[in-house]
Simulated assay, not measured.
Amino acid sequence: MTTVATALRTATTKTGIAALPEVPDPRRTAPKDARALSKLFFEQLATLEEGTHEYQYARNTLIEMNMSLVRYAAGRFRSRGDDMEDIVQVGMIGLIKAIDRFELSREVEFTSFAIPYIVGEIKRFFRDTSWAVHVPRRLQEARVELARATEELRTRLGRAPMVAELAALMNLSEEEVIEARLASNGYHSTSLDAAVNNDSEEGEAALMNFIGVEDPGMELVEDFHALAPLIADLDERDRQIIHLRFVEELTQSQIGERLGCSQMHVSRLLSRTLKRLREGMLAAD
């Protein structure tokens, strides 16, 4: 394994950088050695011109030497059940951001500076991609706060806390607490084809068989589809009366004034037309 002493004794010849040591396998550098070498590389990185081959060598070596930080931070999220390789890849983005923004003048260890960037990037990944249903950022954050408050009150009270108690602890209204609870349902989803236990002799059945409801809107669509040709067969006056009564929502008296006839005559015409349409609908059924 590469040590600091070995690296410092070996000047690079492949890149032509005399001031920087060659690190044969940066990814296998021990964490203790990586800290010492990183300081040296950051010192040189600050003096090199961005975009040059030397600059890229220093930056890439820093990234590879500090990959152990990403694996360490990613290990905190092992229980989430996600692919660890995906988490590590996301954490690498945080590491690169930390390297690009780190300055030795901060007088802080790079490890202490980088870990928050790496963890923050991983948390952002979970926040933006793990929700089965899109939920506003405000409610996502309220869900986390609600979980903490619930656990704190459950420990303190020895029972499940009430909405009013949660609202008082979180400095929110009861409506906002309820909204945060509802938002939590968007974190996980279940397929409508998922099998659920059924007490009947049929055994298991699909979830969709238990949550489906009749949509009255679908029946209206069918009715409109059947009614359209019937209305098209009406004469111009009858179609106009139907339009004035049910689209413009005029009274029979107003329709009579518009057409120049009595309200009684409009009533007879309307009744006759509706009867014709009703019979046509029943015949279609």
Score class of each variant (00 low, 15 high):
18 A>F: 09
20 L>P: 01
220 L>G: 04
38 S>T: 08
120 G>P: 03
249 E>D: 11
128 D>N: 15
121 E>W: 00
29 T>I: 07
262 S>T: 15
212 G>Y: 00
187 Y>V: 14
62 L>H: 01
262 S>V: 12
114 A>P: 00
22 E>K: 15
67 M>R: 13
118 I>D: 00
255 I>L: 02
186 G>D: 10
114 A>L: 01
269 L>S: 09
7 A>W: 00
201 E>R: 13
202 E>G: 09
16 G>I: 02
216 P>A: 03
186 G>K: 10
65 M>H: 03
54 E>G: 11
16 G>R: 06
213 V>L: 08
82 D>F: 03
252 Q>W: 01
204 E>H: 10
53 H>S: 14
99 I>L: 04
63 I>M: 11
258 R>K: 14
167 A>S: 12
113 F>Q: 00
68 S>P: 08
148 R>C: 04
81 G>L: 04
64 E>D: 14
140 Q>P: 10
254 Q>F: 02
48 L>V: 01
173 S>T: 15
232 A>Q: 06
131 W>G: 00
31 P>I: 02
268 R>G: 05
108 V>Q: 07
214 E>F: 09
167 A>T: 06
250 L>Q: 05
151 E>I: 14
89 Q>D: 03
193 D>P: 07
49 E>A: 15
210 F>G: 00
62 L>Q: 01
247 V>H: 08
91 G>L: 03
263 Q>C: 09
88 V>Q: 02
21 P>I: 05
138 R>S: 14
1 M>L: 13
67 M>G: 10
129 T>R: 14
258 R>I: 04
144 V>N: 15
207 L>S: 05
17 I>E: 03
265 H>E: 08
172 L>Y: 13
140 Q>W: 00
111 T>S: 12
42 F>E: 01
11 A>M: 09
28 R>K: 15
10 T>N: 13
111 T>R: 08
35 R>V: 07
93 I>N: 05
220 L>C: 04
237 R>V: 02
173 S>K: 15
113 F>E: 00
278 R>E: 08
57 Y>E: 04
256 G>K: 01
265 H>M: 08
164 A>T: 14
172 L>R: 13
80 R>A: 12
279 E>Y: 02
284 A>Q: 10
48 L>W: 01
274 L>F: 08
243 H>K: 13
36 A>E: 14
40 L>E: 06
27 R>L: 10
173 S>A: 14
164 A>C: 12
122 I>N: 00
143 R>S: 15
165 E>P: 02
27 R>K: 14
265 H>Y: 08
85 E>S: 09
133 V>D: 10
80 R>S: 13
207 L>N: 03
11 A>N: 13
85 E>Q: 10
63 I>V: 15
183 A>M: 09
282 L>G: 04
98 A>C: 11
281 M>G: 06
199 D>T: 15
145 E>G: 15
17 I>D: 04
22 E>N: 13
156 R>F: 07
154 R>L: 10
283 A>M: 12
170 M>S: 07
81 G>E: 01
129 T>M: 08
159 R>M: 07
66 N>I: 05
242 I>V: 00
75 G>N: 10
168 A>C: 06
255 I>E: 00
189 S>L: 09
265 H>C: 06
95 L>K: 02
83 D>M: 09
244 L>E: 01
216 P>K: 07
98 A>G: 05
251 T>K: 12
130 S>W: 10
89 Q>C: 03
136 P>M: 06
107 E>S: 09
162 M>P: 02
64 E>C: 11
86 D>E: 12
245 R>C: 03
104 L>F: 01
104 L>G: 05
82 D>I: 06
282 L>S: 07
